[in-house]
Computed example of a mutant assay.
Amino acid sequence: MFTTRPGTASPIQRTFVGLDFFSVFQEIYLRTNDPRVSNIVVFSNAIGELKVEAAASIEDGKRILFRFDRAAFSFKFLPFKVPYPVPFRLLGDEAKGWLDTTYLSKTGNLRISRGNKGTTFVLQKISDPRQMLLSDISTGKDVKEVVEKFISTNQNDINGEFELVEGEWKMIWSSQMETDSWIENAANGLMGTQIIRKNGQIKFVVNILPGFRFSMIGKFAKSDTSTYNLTMDDAAIIGGPFGYPVEMETKLKLKLLYSDDKIRISRGHKDIIFVHLRVDGSKK
C-alpha cells in the first residue's frame, strides 16, 4: 500500500498507516454480519503484526464509513494476542472516518481511495487463496476441481490436521449430485447452517419457508486428528415461538479436509464434500 500523509491526517492514521519501515495491508469485509475494515502493519515474518480494526458500513454505494474499535499485536513468539492500549471509545471523532473509492481497475487488483482527512491510498490486491476459492464458487465453474486443488495444497502445508472451530457456518457449495428429500438433506447436514459450540454441541438449521425452519441438535466427538463422530437426535420444525418435534436420529462421520477461522471444507454423508463459510463474525 502507498499512502500520502498530509499534516491534517488524524493521529490514528499517522500511527497505523504512516509507517515507512513496515509493510501495510488493508482488509475489507463488508458482506458479513460484522462488516469491518482493518489496517495491518507487518513488522516481519519472524516478529508478527499489529492489526487495527474498525466497524464499517457503506454510504451511497462507494463510501465506506468506519469507526476504529479494537487493535492487537500478534507476535510469532507468543501464543496469544496483546491488546494495543488505545482508548478508542474516548477518542470520539478521532476514531471515525470514511474512505471513497476514486478508482478501481477492471480486474479489481488496483484501488485508489481518498480518506476523510485528505489522505490518498493506492492499494494492490493480494490474491488470497481463500478469496480465490470463494470467487470460483460464486461463478460455479469447475468448482470441484478448484476445491480439490485447494485441499491438496493446504493439506501439504499443515499436515492435514484440523479442528472443528466454534461458530455459525453456512454451506455455500457441495459436491452432491443426487438430491434426497429436503428433510434427509437437512438431517445429514447437507444444506443450511451448522452451529458449533465449545461444549461439543452441534446444530443444523435450515430455513424452510418464511417464518419456519428445521432444527436438529446433537453432539460431536473427535475420533482422530481430523475426524468427528456426530450423533443428531433432537429434531424439530419451528414456527415462531412453537416447535413441532420430529422423531429421527442421524449418525454421521465428518472428516475435515481444511479448516480455519473463516472457511471449512469437509467430507460427510455419502462422501459428499461441502464448503462452509463462517458468518457469525466472531473470532477464533
Rank of each mutant, 00 (worst) to 15 (best):
F73L: 11
I58S: 07
L30Y: 06
K51T: 12
V37L: 14
T15G: 11
K62D: 00
K51V: 01
R63E: 09
I64E: 00
F68Y: 12
E27Q: 12
A71V: 06
Q13W: 04
R67V: 10
Q13L: 05
F66K: 04
F43L: 13
R14N: 14
D69T: 01
L19I: 14
K51D: 01
I28C: 11
P79A: 09
E49H: 09
R36T: 15
V17L: 15
F77I: 10
N45R: 15
R14T: 14
S38V: 03
I58Y: 03
N39K: 08
A55V: 00
V24S: 10
V41A: 07
E49D: 10
S38H: 00
I58K: 13
R36S: 13
E27L: 11
A56V: 13
R36V: 15
F25I: 07
D20Y: 08
E59Q: 01
Q13D: 10
D60F: 05
V52K: 02
A46E: 14
S74I: 11
K62G: 01
R36M: 11
F77A: 09
G18T: 08
F68A: 10
V24F: 05
V42K: 15
G18M: 03
G48D: 13
R31W: 01
Q26G: 07
L78G: 09
L30V: 02
F66W: 03
E49G: 08
D69N: 14
S57C: 02
T15A: 15
V37K: 07
N33A: 11
N45K: 09
L19T: 10
K76G: 03
E49A: 13
S57P: 06
F68N: 12
D20S: 15
F25G: 08
A54I: 12
T15I: 05
F73Q: 04
E27V: 02
L50V: 08
A54W: 07
P35L: 03
R67W: 03
T15E: 11
G61C: 05
L30C: 04
G48C: 07
S44E: 03
F21T: 15
K62H: 06
V37E: 02
L19W: 07
R31I: 09
I40S: 00
I64T: 05
F25E: 12
F73T: 01
L30P: 04
A56T: 10
P79S: 09
F22L: 06
Y29R: 13
E53K: 08
I47V: 05
S57W: 03
F22R: 12
S38P: 00
S57G: 12
I64P: 01
A55D: 09
E53R: 15
K76Q: 13
E49T: 09
